[in-house]
Structures are given as C-alpha cells and as structure tokens.
Amino acid sequence: MIRGLKIVSIPVTDQDVALAFYTEKMGFKVGTDQPMWPGQRWIELIIPGADTRLALFTPQGHEDRVGGFQSMTFWCDDVFATAEALKARGVTLAEEPTKQPWGTYAKFRDPDGNEFVFSSR
C-alpha cells in the first residue's frame, strides 16, 4: 500500500540559483546532488524534521511549469513567526499571513516565481 509522499518536484530554470535559495533562505538541506544528463542534475532537498523530500528538477518538455502557483502546501507551527523569519532571510512573500475560518496561511515566491502556500498544521 502507498505510505506517503517521497519526493515532490519543484520546476526551476537554474538549479544553482534554486539550490542557493532553498538551502540558504529556506533552511533546507541537500540530500543528494548528482548529474543526470547534460545540463540537468538530480537535486533532492531535505526539510529538517520531515519525511518528504523536494527535487529541484524540471523534466524535459515541462519547462512551461516553471513559475506561477504550485499546487503544494508547506506546513509550519506558526505562520506569523515563519513569515517574519522568511522575510528576514530575504524571501519574498506573495501574500502576508491571513487568518481564515479554515486556518491560517501565507504565500512565498522562489527566484523562478514559483508560488507556494504555507500554513499552520
């Protein structure tokens, strides 16, 4: 039976720029960084304390998926504190923290314009 998500890919145009952003500004760790084919590496990132990994990878023919809203949500303990910490590291928020009847969330953008939600668990 399926037991969870192992890897979620984030489409990027420049793997070096994305790697610097996700490690230096978001605080993720490198799980693996190895060659795949010319011009493309397989980069897996570890989110400290999480089982799911992120891959900075754009399959050939899927370049049109870079930028815009990405359909994944990160969770955190406190959206307001996380938003302040990310802004202090230079991360651009696409939307400030907002409380809704269904929960609290905010959005951030990476260097490629990919936009992600983060919310309290």
Rank of each mutant, 00 (worst) to 15 (best):
M1K: 15
I2S: 02
I2W: 11
G4W: 14
G4R: 13
G4F: 14
L5K: 11
K6P: 00
K6M: 03
K6N: 03
I7Q: 05
V8E: 00
S9A: 08
I10M: 00
P11R: 07
V12I: 10
D14L: 10
D14N: 12
D14F: 09
D16A: 15
D16F: 14
V17L: 10
L19C: 13
L19E: 14
F21K: 06
Y22C: 02
E24G: 15
E24H: 14
E24D: 15
K25T: 06
K25F: 09
K25C: 06
M26N: 02
M26S: 03
M26Q: 09
M26L: 14
F28P: 07
F28T: 11
K29I: 00
V30M: 11
G31W: 01
G31E: 04
T32N: 07
D33P: 08
P35E: 12
P35R: 14
M36V: 07
W37Q: 10
Q40M: 13
R41V: 03
R41L: 03
I43K: 10
E44Q: 11
E44I: 05
E44G: 09
L45F: 09
I47Y: 01
I47S: 05
P48S: 08
G49I: 13
A50H: 15
L54E: 12
L54P: 10
L54A: 15
A55T: 14
L56M: 06
F57A: 10
T58W: 08
P59M: 08
P59E: 07
P59I: 05
P59S: 07
Q60W: 00
G61R: 02
G61Q: 00
H62K: 11
E63C: 02
D64S: 13
D64W: 01
R65G: 02
G67L: 12
F69R: 08
Q70C: 06
Q70N: 04
M72T: 12
F74A: 02
F74T: 01
W75E: 13
W75G: 00
W75M: 09
C76M: 15
C76E: 15
C76N: 12
D77F: 00
V79N: 04
F80R: 15
A81P: 06
A81I: 04
A83M: 03
E84C: 06
E84S: 12
E84G: 06
E84W: 00
E84M: 08
L86T: 00
A88Y: 14
R89W: 03
R89H: 15
V91P: 01
V91E: 03
V91T: 05
V91A: 07
T92G: 00
L93R: 08
A94R: 06
E95L: 12
T98C: 12
Q100G: 13
P101D: 15
P101W: 13
W102T: 06
W102S: 08
T104W: 02
Y105A: 07
A106T: 05
K107F: 07
F108M: 07
R109S: 10
R109C: 04
D110A: 09
D110W: 02
P111S: 03
D112K: 00
D112C: 05
G113E: 13
G113R: 07
F116V: 01
F116Y: 05
F116E: 03
R121P: 03
